[in-house]
Design a protein around this nucleic acid. Structure first.
Lengths: 138, 138
DNA sequence: CGACTAACGTTAGGTGGACTAACGTTAGTC
DNA sequence: GACTAACGTTAGTCCACCTAACGTTAGTCG
């Protein structure tokens, strides 16, 4: 069983997930928060668009945006051009939060990848990216 | 964010997890079932020992063994040498089930790793194994 | 031999990520 | 105006993973 790539993937991802959960929990955040704030640094977007970019399901998006809005990290406003949509915008406070979480995310990578050399890290990223492409319509 | 190894890991693991869930659900199984049956092929063991070998938490172990026992794949009996313990044994029916799930697991690897060459697959396994060792006391 | 600690197994519950289904409003097309 | 699709929301499920508390049993120690 330990020879199975899917097993190795899910076990190492569980380890990565624990690191992410622990380090973000130290500042009252979760993985979804980081994912959304990072995406919004690229500019305002609708909830549906954010869902497409981040992989967060629309039903979960509502809850996460509620949390980020309550904490003042993002703002939601109706799109005057299309009343079906909200436009979600990051706030200054949200930019700071994104920077804080990004720093934590980088530290997590270092911790996670400690057993690997720099060349091995690059190769791992390359191989995982190939697998990601193979799973595109996720 | 897409450059982060932890992100790539969790996204590819989610993809692997979906494949595992879908393929096993086709025959009414889950990942924990396969993990336990595979481990029991190595001989009878206590629940605590099974927990240590598989990484399945003891509280989840109870539920999974209940399911496998109900379906006739394993048997539980008290250990005469130590009444605190149960001894869990795979049945003939369980061996067949393990073989069926192992075949599915191999097919999942092929599907998951389609974008990679044989050399790349070996390298991915090597790199992930290194990361697993780095997270040993999980 | 009783007190204490640890192992074992069970029950009950929680978390986070991921997902489904149904609904009401809005926009675009025919 | 009817129809279809997009958008956002609500309510829920599933799975892997995890914590806490409890009762029974076994081993150690004074």
């Amino acid at each position: 069983m330990e020879h199975l790539p899917s097993w190795l993937l899910t076990q190492t991802a569980a380890h990565a997930g624990r690191l992410v959960t622990e380090r973000f929990a130290e500042v009252g955040a979760r993985g979804y928060h980081y994912r959304l704030l990072e995406t919004l640094l690229g500019g305002p977007a609708s909830q549906a668009e954010l869902g497409r970019r981040t992989g967060i399901h629309l039903s979960d998006m509502v809850a996460v945006l509620n949390e980020l809005t309550a904490d003042g990290y993002v703002e939601r406003s109706p799109d005057p051009a299309d009343k079906r949509r909200n436009v979600v915008t990051i706030t200054d406070r949200g930019r700071e939060r994104a920077a804080e979480l990004a720093a934590r995310a980088e530290a997590i990578q270092d911790e996670l990848l400690t057993p690997l050399t720099a060349a091995e890290r690059a190769e791992l990223v390359r191989l995982l990216s190939l697998l990601r492409k193979g799973a595109a319509p996720a």
